[in-house]
Design a binder for these strands. Structure first.
Length: 553
RNA sequence: GCGCCUGUAGCUCAGUUGGAUAGAGCGGCACUCUUCUAAAGUGCAUGCCGCAGGUUCGAUUCCUGCCAGGCGCACCA
């Protein structure tokens, strides 16, 4: 029995009570069920009686007793107890509870997937680091969280396109080109330019590919350095992200917006919507009409288009491609963008509550010897995605970055990364994958046959640890759905850590395979089903985080 | 000054429509392997859930104020 089925059963019990005239209240559309902390409180608890107490004008415990009376008649329920201020503690019949394992195994990779976000077309933009330097640790957090979110949204049935916006127009590229040129000439990095070893490396690569640039006049060499440097840097970024398991559906160039005239078009479109005006020689968008702090310049007095103008064109482009919702994942240093992006959507005639969602993530703070290490491309003291992967590997890196809420700053001690690697919770979770695999492999070696459905006897799974495991496994679809709706991948990770603990305790207390001369029993076979179900959930969950489910560790 | 985020165990952090004795991992102490992987399990210790009010039968959760930390407030990108 799944939580959803139980939730329906409770609802039916409530309406039965209402129909019998015992309860004068509206039947709630949803029944909130939660897994209990201890088995003394049964498998699931609901606070429905306390919620209905007020409208029904009866004490909560009395309401609880009434509902319990009806709920006890439902099939698959062994016990209903009224506890505390009016909780209904429900214990499932072990046969009904155990059938969940069968459903999970049959569903396989589909278990946890849903239609919650069906038909929603979502554009998910993340990382979008300037192609003027490597992907640093701050971006890496977005790579891990963003890519996981893409997988989770898809699991919830949304139609998602992940996208990387390449800021390849503007002065940053010129600074980058100047820095490369300086490095190629053996000069120090220009004021306001980029330093760091990667600049010298790229400059050397360019000279290797195009030796004639060594003697070319600066004016001729500069564009070459810019274009070649851009290509090399972007290739490096793409490569790092690919190795990190991050896939993008679209790599979108800012330049292409300017080149195709879409920036001008966007300004014209917004002008016809009536939100554009001219002042002091500049062209403005009146974002203050929609709650922004101040109006935003789209074209400066010198005729240059601002970054925001390109943003506007990019937004309109996304909408024209049919996306209902555009998710922007930005660092905390960009939180001032929320207002203008939402206002931009309003100016374009959209409802920003639907079409724009800005996820602000706090920055990753690096400590080295108790001192904060600033991440700056200019200073050249960057810890990059590649650095972190080299230290701990893709799995641990992705998991570590994705397991915390993006609302909280992440403090990572550079020196502790390596040292703590074996203690990373990712191994605690992955160990479940390895254990479940080994158990099944050993069972096959012993010649145990458990795959036919008739070898599964859910009613034998009566141990508390089996009940806890079943309840935990049953939670997975709800966790995935809420992670998708709230755009919070860390919920998957936290759930899996909990599931891992529950499984380890089951493994420790409930012998799955026969010992020595012991005969193979139905209980062994049934526990193998539970083992398989756990492996299914753990691998599905790890896949959503882009982390492998190893067969051995 | 204004705005956003955060403040929970020694450390890193969970805790969504308010609920039962506030949790996990790591770290500390003490235990458990001749039998499925001990990267595990069991027990113990450590908490004015930043502070003060308010709403409520009930607040870590909601509201207000204050304190502390981070990050922003360009005709930069």
């Amino acid at each position: 029995m799944t939580p959803a089925e139980l939730s329906d059963a409770v609802q039916i019990a409530v309406s039965a009570a209402v129909q019998a005239g015992e309860l004068d209240a509206e039947v709630p559309r949803e029944v909130h069920l939660e897994r209990t902390r201890t088995r003394e409180h049964g498998d699931y608890a609901t606070n429905i009686a306390m919620q209905l107490a007020k409208p029904a004008r009866k004490p909560p415990r009395e309401v609880a007793e009434i509902i319990a009376g009806h709920l006890r008649r439902a099939s698959g329920i062994e016990k209903v107890a009224v506890a505390g201020p009016g909780f209904l503690n429900i214990t499932l019949d072990s046969g009904a509870a155990g059938r969940l394992a069968y459903q999970i195994v049959v569903a396989g990779t589909a278990y946890g997937r849903s239609e919650t976000l069906r038909k929603q077309r979502i554009n998910l933009e993340f990382v979008s680091a300037n192609p003027t330097g490597p992907v640093h640790l701050g971006h890496t957090r977005w790579a891990a969280v963003g890519d996981s979110l893409r997988r989770i949204l898809e699991a919830a049935g949304a139609d998602v396109a992940s996208e990387y916006y390449i800021n390849d127009a503007g002065v940053q590229m010129e600074k980058f080109a100047n820095s490369l040129l300086a490095a190629a000439r053996g000069l120090p990095a220009p004021q306001d330019g980029y330093g760091g070893q990667y600049i010298a490396d790229i400059a050397a690569k360019i000279l290797e590919a195009a030796p004639h640039l060594a003697d070319a006049p600066d004016a001729d060499a500069l564009p070459e350095f810019r274009e070649r440097g851009h290509r090399l840097m972007l290739a490096e970024i793409t490569g790092s992200l690919e190795k990190f398991g991050v896939h993008y559906d679209v790599w979108f160039s800012e330049r292409s917006l300017h080149a195709s005239g879409r920036v001008d078009e966007a300004i014209a479109t917004l002008r016809t919507q009536g939100h554009v005006y001219d002042l002091d020689g500049a062209i403005w968008l009146r974002t203050t009409d929609f709650g922004d702090d101040k109006d935003r310049v789209m074209v400066k007095a010198d005729g240059e288009k601002t970054y925001f103008a390109a943003d506007a064109a990019y937004y309109l482009d996304k909408r024209s491609r049919g996306f209902d919702t555009c998710i922007y994942m930005l660092g905390a240093d960009h939180h001032g963008y929320i207002g203008r992006l939402r206002a931009l959507a309003s100016c374009a005639g959209d409802d920003p509550d639907i079409s724009v969602m800005v996820l602000i993530g706090q920055l990753v703070k690096l400590l080295q010897g108790g001192e904060e290490l600033k991440m700056s491309k200019r200073a050249g003291t960057i810890v990059t995605l590649e650095d972190m992967v080299d230290l701990v590997g893709v799995d641990a890196a992705r998991y570590t970055l994705a397991r915390s809420s993006t609302d909280s700053q992440l403090v990572i001690d550079v020196e502790e990364i390596t040292k703590q690697a074996p203690e990373n919770p990712v191994y605690y979770v992955q160990y479940v994958a390895a254990r479940t695999f080994r158990v099944a492999a050993n069972a096959r070696d012993l010649g145990i046959e458990w795959s036919p459905p008739e070898s599964f006897h859910p009613e034998l799974l009566t141990d508390d640890r089996e009940a806890r495991l079943l309840a935990a496994l049953g939670d997975f679809p709800r966790v995935v759905a809420s992670a998708a709706e709230l755009r919070e991948p860390h919920r998957i990770a936290r759930y899996m850590e909990e599931l891992a603990g529950v499984y380890h305790r089951f493994y420790d207390g409930c012998r799955i395979l026969p010992r020595g001369e012991e005969e193979v029993s139905d209980l062994h076979r049934s526990r193998l089903w539970l083992n398989d179900a756990t492996r299914t959930v753990i691998s599905n969950g790890l896949a959503m985080l882009g982390v492998s489910a190893p067969e051995r560790m």
